[in-house]
């Protein structure tokens, strides 16, 4: 199961990378420069870090049949909070850095609770509930930065998104850590089982004694944390915070990454590794379009077409209409197995 789900995304990713090789013979080359590993592949990983993080959180939300439209705003807010905390800091003391991290995580947990309470306790549909934060969050971010692009002159802060560890960009380690945490939570505790069960059949889950409310809350909080850390990386990377443009379109890219990765918008089974590959596809696409020299704006058109194709492929109606005969036979067989109940 797992293998077949990951197969096509990996193929697509490889094709995109190979196209690059065609234009740039050195695309796959990784060199050591100034003691760091550099190269296009490293670059994709590094630049894709915030999207990877946000997508990991979004995967769990979508698995519960929800969606979190607020992540872009959370990125902006987190960046603003982080930058504001260290704005006055100078020198090498690490205290402001950790204060900033603490504040960012606190505010992202807060946003997650906000969304999660609206969805799980008040029963607002996820699209609508998270829309509120999507609108208001950016306003709050701008309020924090006072509408300016806030610049940071504090070196330790820039380490998060721009520093290196073991010759690799530090942000890659953050992504890896969050991925490990997500995998641990979902595969080594019962979280994953509960998420998939609630996302597939909420009523049957309730009758099996599962409290879906806390699971929903948890999922939105996790998504908030992921977005918050993503925002920290973005802001640290450019040593500034821009309430208006930071994290713009991220919710859409993240949803796209999740869907490409094989997780259905109808909830249920989720594929963290699929999402990772989905996010890498989006990032490589962006990089490719830049490197080939097409207007970067065409990216949007390509993304639109990819979204449509993926959704159409997931639609049973589409499959029935297009792959007609072949598929009809298969569903027939399937319903035979299931035993159609007539009532």
């Amino acid at each position: 199961m797992m293998k077949s789900k990951l197969f096509w995304p990996i193929v697509v990713l490889l094709i995109i990378l190979l196209i690059n090789l065609f234009f740039d013979k050195n695309f796959f080359t990784i060199e050591v420069k100034n003691g760091y590993l550099t190269g296009s592949l490293i670059d994709i990983l590094n630049r894709g870090a915030p999207l990877l993080l946000v997508s990991i959180g979004m995967t769990l939300v979508i698995a519960t049949k929800g969606v979190d439209l607020g992540v872009g705003s959370v990125i902006a807010m987190a960046g603003a909070v982080g930058a504001m905390t260290v704005s006055g800091a100078n020198g090498d003391s690490l205290v402001p850095l950790f204060t900033a991290i603490a504040f960012v995580i606190a505010i992202s947990i807060l946003t997650g609770i906000w969304n999660g309470v609206l969805v799980s306790r008040i029963g607002v549909q996820p699209i609508v509930a998270t829309l509120i934060l999507m609108v208001a969050g950016r306003g709050i971010a701008q309020l924090i930065t006072d509408g300016q692009i806030m610049t940071v002159y504090y070196d330790p802060y820039t380490f998060i998104g721009g520093g290196h560890l073991l010759m690799l960009p530090f942000s890659i380690f953050i992504v890896a850590a969050m991925l490990v945490i997500a995998s641990f939570l979902t595969r080594k505790t019962a979280m994953g089982l509960f998420i998939e069960s609630v996302g597939t059949n909420p009523e049957a889950s309730r009758l099996s004694g599962i409290n879906s409310k806390n699971i929903l809350l948890m999922v939105y909080v996790f998504s908030g944390i992921c977005a918050g850390i993503g925002g920290l990386i973005l802001s640290s990377n450019v040593a500034s915070a821009d309430g208006n443009n930071a994290g713009l379109w991220y919710e859409l890219d993240a949803i796209l990454a999740v869907v490409i990765g094989g997780t259905s918008l109808n909830g249920g089974r989720f594929y963290l590794m699929g999402t990772v590959i989905g996010a890498l596809i989006i990032q490589s696409l962006t990089t490719t379009i830049y490197s080939i020299g097409i207007a970067p704006e065409i990216n949007l058109v390509v993304k639109a077409i990819v979204v449509l194709i993926v959704c159409l492929l997931q639609s049973p109606e589409f499959r029935k209409k297009v792959f007609g005969v072949f598929n009809m036979k298969q569903t027939e067989k399937k319903s035979k197995n299931e035993g159609v109940s007539i009532s």
């Binding site: 969606v67 869907v259 704006e297 949007l300 058109v301 959704c311 209409k321």
Partner: peptide, 23 residues
């Protein structure tokens, strides 16, 4: 016709229209 969610279809429409602007 394909019973897709309006949310995702119009999201794609949103990307597409913006992209076409830049084209």
């Amino acid at each position: 016709y394909f019973n897709l969610q309006p949310f995702i279809v119009t999201l794609a429409g949103m990307f597409l229209a913006r992209g076409l602007c830049y084209l």
